[in-house]
Amino acid sequence: MYREALREAIDEEMERNKLVFIIGEGIAERGGSYKVTEGLLAKYGSLRVRDTPIAEAGMIGVGVGAAIAGARPIVEILYIDFAMLGMDMIVNQAAKFRLMTGGDGRVPFVMRTQGGAGGGVAAQHSQSLEALFYHIPGLKVVMPSVPADAKGLLKYALRQDDPVMFLEHKHLYMSKGPVPDGEHIVEFGKGDIKRSGKDVTLIAWSNMIPRSLEAAEALAKEGIDVEVVDPRTLVPLDKELILTSVAKTNRVVIVQEAVRRGGVASDIASIIQEEAFYDLDAPIEIVAGLNIPIPFNLELEKASVPQKDDVIAAVKRCLHPEQFTARAAN
């Protein structure tokens, strides 16, 4: 399971390096809201596993300071929405320290948090905010979609020296999948083909991977062969993997749960058109969340973020753009 994979990564790295420690709300005795840190207090003690008061700016800042001073903190923030309280520490301190110090200072800081809609927890607990961090030079942005990647990426995060926004998804904690035992490391900037196919390149991350895979299976029954590309880390981005797939399929659909406006999908689309324009046989399709806060009502919530059918429809549009005259007329 995804949450167990995360726990394994933290456990193994804490075992390996005494400077790794974790702080957050209710993560010690209680084991965290998503049970990721269960058992760690008993094993490592209250020096290295501690609860914090509800002080997100403070705990993120303290984590950044500890990282600057050479420790390897993991700060768990309950919801990505709450990370907004610590934005100064992330954006103005952690992200900039290495450059501001001419490379002498490093910030091996890992913020683990989770986002995404679907839990009926409404507008302040459902956002997908990766684009905010993606926009800030100096941060690494990691969004694992399966348990094995969750483990391998978190282990890597705890061994490299830059600030990492490790963004989990609330719907993935219970998801299952094989996880290699022990030393399993996934380097940043190495994407993964989650399903290979020849007709369309579908780029997605985090919870949009399982959704896209479902869509791909449905499309396979209609004889459409979709390649699902998971960059795994948005910063750094595995451009090579994406461009290689585009060169093969000549068609691209990008799926993101986050709102469309100013999103990472738009940026990936712009990279593809810059670097692979002549490989494309159709306009790039983007499937994204609506440009709104997430509503509470279940049906409206579903309507706000990409569903399987939205993905299927986009793939079909991409295969037969000439049939979609609305676009041409516009």
Binding site: K18, V62, V64, G65, I68, A69, Q93
Partner: peptide, 14 residues
């Protein structure tokens, strides 16, 4: 202030 407290925390961990 938070950065300094963080360095103090790092010292304690060490």
């Amino acid at each position: 202030t938070p950065l300094g407290v963080g360095a103090a925390l790092a010292a304690q961990i060490r």
